[in-house]
Amino acid sequence: MINAVLVFNNAGQPRLTKFYTQLETSVQQRLISEIFALVSHRPTGSCNFLPLPPLLASSGTSSSSSPHEHNDIPSLVTYRHYATLYFIIISTATESPLALIDLIQVYVEALDRLFENVCELDLIFNFETLHACLAEIIVGGVVVETQLERVVEGVKSQGRVAKRPVNESRGVALGGMGGNFGWAGR
């Protein structure tokens, strides 16, 4: 299952934190900063999987363990980087690594549909929608929907999605999917 979904920007500022197990706020923050430290200095062309951050690695798991005994333990940290944002999924071994990469893509595409050319600012000011969208895809750590249309439809049924405030939109040209958001602003 999926243990946590995190979104933060290039400076490590969280934009969304969703933990599917209850965790102290301070521990959450430590985990975020540890993952940020790992993710922010990946050489170009490296894979989308991170080694376990110390906080997770210390709690008694090792990579070369036998497959069936540790299925409860988060063992996989998958990330994707879009322009200014990192999307992170922490999961156990029951999830497929490659599928998780696609899942992040689904999430981002759904957001793009909802906001029309999504950018970091949209997510900052509408973080409620961010949560709502995620809730259409993942409930309680289990994936419930992977079809883009249905996700978008589900969020829209909850009410109008707010647009970004007009005067904030300067220099916010964050468009285009597939890992090359071109947000040049700020």
Binding site: N3, T21, L23, L56, S59, G60, D72, I73, P74, I90
Partner: peptide, 22 residues
């Protein structure tokens, strides 16, 4: 060599984000 180290560790301690389904 391989598993010896991990066996004992697996018990008892709970990982941080782990959902206990035991």
């Amino acid at each position: 060599s391989l598993e010896g180290h991990q066996r004992p560790k697996a018990k008892g301690k709970h990982s941080l984000l782990q959902v206990d389904s035991s």
